[in-house]
Amino acid sequence: MSRSMLPRALRIVAIVAMASLAAACAQKQQGVDGQAGLGGPGGPGSAAPGSAQDFTVNVGDRVFFETDSTSLTPQARETLNRQGQWLRSYSRYSILVEGHADERGTREYNLALGARRAQVVRDYLASQGVDASRIRTVSYGKERPVAVCDNISCWSQNRRAVTVLN
């Protein structure tokens, strides 16, 4: 019956195996912040606490999703926990949560999928004590990829929700 998907276990192995490649891909093609692929803090950031750079570098501005999924992974929850804490500390910011999908889906469905991803992040941050009135969401569907190669390493970077500070 199911030619359509890799077995789940195999998929996870594949994603792990691709992780280093993903980071390389991101840096090469986008100049995206190297933390982005990992969604967590790396070394000590030199950014001023409370700055947008601090948020992006030391907190992690994005979470990633599995194919056709809107469930938060454990890593995504960790990132969002840090985001929640940071946003509670720096309440002067309102935020826009952008939901995105990879290119491996149909356009309209991916627009709705991106909206649902943004909504999931919004709900999670609200549950972490971030006032919901500070959070706006938007979906870009598959129209705004950050990584443009044609393999799983790029697709996995594009299935994301990005928290943008205002």
Binding site: M1, S2, R3, S4, G105, T106
Partner: peptide, 23 residues
């Protein structure tokens, strides 16, 4: 097998076109 989306009903009425993702 797989996922189906973007249905478009034929102007003749006899068929529905779609996009399918499988394998």
């Amino acid at each position: 097998d797989g996922r189906y989306g973007q249905p478009a009903w034929s102007p003749r009425g006899d068929l529905i076109a779609f996009t399918k993702l499988a394998g």
